[in-house]
């Protein structure tokens, strides 16, 4: 849906918003890759406090070679269903040019080879970066009142379906909206106020020092292993958000979108409004 640009330019993203946007982009990339590295050290997730195979939701492992098979097979179990995932999960790239029994492949982890200690160093450092970015964004957005434009309000709810129909080309015109359309508001509100805070909190909740300091937090998520499961599930949701974000950035004028997140200046399209 190529939007006709009106040529009118507006200063949309403050320096704080742009800085924190790119900082958490980098942080998310590093956190996902180092998180997969950490996952590989115990490649299973249980919906419980201590480990309990009866409550296992996901496990990624290898089945030893037997009979005609020359090498082990990657085996992934998800809610009791078993999948053969050789080369992708379980028996994969070891980060050093050959294959090994490893849950996530070397190309997806940081560092590439199995190295829990360094994976944790990356993860804990960029966990702070992500937290800093989200705080800077929210504080600056609150001070500048930019946040008002992207928080989903009850009055936006009836516009969600018409907007979705417009995206699906089942409707000619989008519902009238301000700076961000109702679906954008829903996505940004969810990511900024729910998913990113939750992924930080679930990460903290699975640490023994934090559990001792703030036990109700760990209990809230159902215990340490359950917090680990939520942490992983939230990551997959955020990856889903990232993919959707990329598709829409490229579908709605990539230069304009990317430039606005670099310089702050955005050229309005024919349906773009300004304000909350």
């Amino acid at each position: 849906m190529r939007l006709a640009l009106t040529g009118k330019r507006v200063y949309r993203h403050s320096i704080a918003a742009r800085f924190s946007h790119w900082l958490w982009t980098l942080a998310m990339l590093v956190l996902v890759m180092s998180g997969l590295q950490i996952f590989n050290a115990a490649p299973y997730l249980d919906a419980s406090d201590q480990n309990n195979p009866a409550r296992r939701v996901l496990s990624i492992g290898a089945r030893q070679a037997s009979g005609a098979a020359q090498h082990p097979a990657g085996v992934t179990q998800f809610f009791g269903h078993t999948f053969t995932t050789t080369g992708v999960l379980g028996y994969t790239d070891d980060g050093q040019g050959s294959r090994a029994e490893r849950a996530f492949p070397g190309w997806a982890t940081l560092p590439g080879e199995q190295d829990l200690a360094d994976g944790r160093r990356w993860h804990l450092f960029f966990g702070w970066c992500l937290s800093l970015a989200i705080v800077v964004y929210l504080v600056a957005g609150a001070i500048r009142k930019d946040l008002r434009e992207l928080i989903l309000r009850p009055s936006d709810l009836p516009k969600l379906l018409p907007m979705q129909l417009y995206y699906l080309r089942l409707r000619k015109e989008p519902p009238p909206h301000g700076t961000y359309n109702p679906l954008q508001k829903a996505a940004y509100t969810g990511v900024l106020f729910v998913f990113i805070p939750l992924i930080i909190l679930t990460g903290l909740a699975l640490s023994p020092g934090v559990d001792a300091l703030a036990g109700p937090l760990t209990a809230l998520f159902g215990g340490r292993q359950f917090a680990r499961l939520w942490h992983f599930a939230l990551m997959t949701l955020l990856i889903g958000y990232f993919i959707t974000h990329m598709v829409l950035v490229f579908a709605t004028g990539p230069w304009n979108n990317i430039r606005s997140m670099v310089t702050g200046w955005y050229t309005l399209g024919e349906h773009d409004g300004v304000g909350p």
Binding site: A41, A42, Q50, N51, R120, L206, P208, R224, Q225, R228
Partner: peptide, 11 residues
């Protein structure tokens, strides 16, 4: 609960 750096726990 004993929490291993690898990610698993046992009481």
């Amino acid at each position: 609960r004993h929490d291993c750096v690898e990610g698993w726990s046992v009481v």
